[in-house]
């Protein structure tokens, strides 16, 4: 598909979501997947700062725990933190460059070990404030062009708008409240991955795949369904389990 066509599709999808009741984590995850396609990168993650100014992973293009952990490593070091603090994008960082491993001694080897060659960080801005960063990883030696960077910034801005647009927060009047709600939802999701993984004797990643497929096909919001499961108010036997189950 030509890039214009792809962009049109993403634009329509984004607009559709934002005018409707939508699930933030699911939305950001789809947006991360679109970033991967549009920017021709290998992985994308949305990181949001918590009340301690520490970056937390809200969504990633691929929900596998290994990738989530790699993004989590960027809570106190790595290009996303620098981008968050400076408010400026950091693009086309060569992970094999000795400067990278010197600057970020934990993050750089972990990223290389995951097969990534270069990385980028794009700020998520809100009225002069930076609330988080979009992290992009590449497995091939191909630099992001200026046009790519501009597009990445636009996608980061869409993520920011989505976070502040959550409909379910009728009573959360503040931006800080919305950010907090988003971060809490993410943690609930991880706790539920564990609950389902143990009930079904599969990995958390497999449990999440089954859970998300069920939520999407039944038009449940991921965060809402996760909350019900965590509170013991949803019979998880209704969810078709992974084929690996007994």
């Amino acid at each position: 598909m030509a890039r214009e066509q792809q962009l049109t599709k993403v634009f329509v999808e984004v607009a559709d979501s934002l005018i409707d009741d939508f699930d933030l984590i699911d939305f950001l995850q789809r947006l991360s997947e679109r970033c991967v396609e549009l920017l021709d990168v290998a992985a994308c993650g949305v990181l949001l700062a918590d009340e301690h100014d520490v970056l937390q992973v809200l969504a990633a293009s691929d929900e596998n725990t290994r990738l989530l952990e790699l993004f989590a490593l960027q809570h106190d070091q790595g290009p996303c933190v620098e981008c968050y603090r400076s408010g400026r994008p950091r693009t086309n960082i060569d992970l094999a460059d000795p400067n990278a491993s010197q600057a970020w001694p934990q993050f750089t080897p972990a990223a290389l070990q995951s097969g990534f060659l270069s990385t980028n960080a794009i700020p998520m801005r809100l009225r002069g404030r930076v609330i988080g960063a979009l992290g992009l990883f590449q497995t091939r030696d191909s630099a992001l062009s200026d046009a790519d960077t501009a597009l990445a910034q636009a996608l980061a801005d869409v993520a920011t708008i989505a976070i502040l647009q959550q409909r379910t927060l009728a009573h959360s009047e503040t931006e800080r409240g919305q950010l907090q709600y988003a971060l809490t939802s993410r943690i609930v999701l991880e706790q539920v991955k564990g609950i389902l993984a143990e009930r079904w004797q599969v990995t958390p990643d497999q449990a999440f795949a089954a859970f998300r497929a069920y939520a999407r096909s039944h038009h449940h919001q991921l965060s809402h369904l996760a909350r019900l499961i965590a509170d013991g108010e949803f019979d998880t036997d209704q969810i078709p389990r992974s084929p690996r189950h007994r």
Binding site: H52, V54, Q56, V57, T65, L68, E69, A72, H75, D76, I187, E190, Q191, V192, K193, G194, I195, L196, A197, E198, R199, P204, A230
Partner: peptide, 24 residues
């Protein structure tokens, strides 16, 4: 404090709650 940044801690919490049949 930053242990709670790791998805794996929350996943393990969920797993243990089922294994031991206790609250989160």
């Amino acid at each position: 404090a930053d242990a709670l940044l790791h998805a794996v801690v929350h996943q393990a919490t969920g797993m243990v709650s089922v294994q031991l049949d206790v609250s989160l």
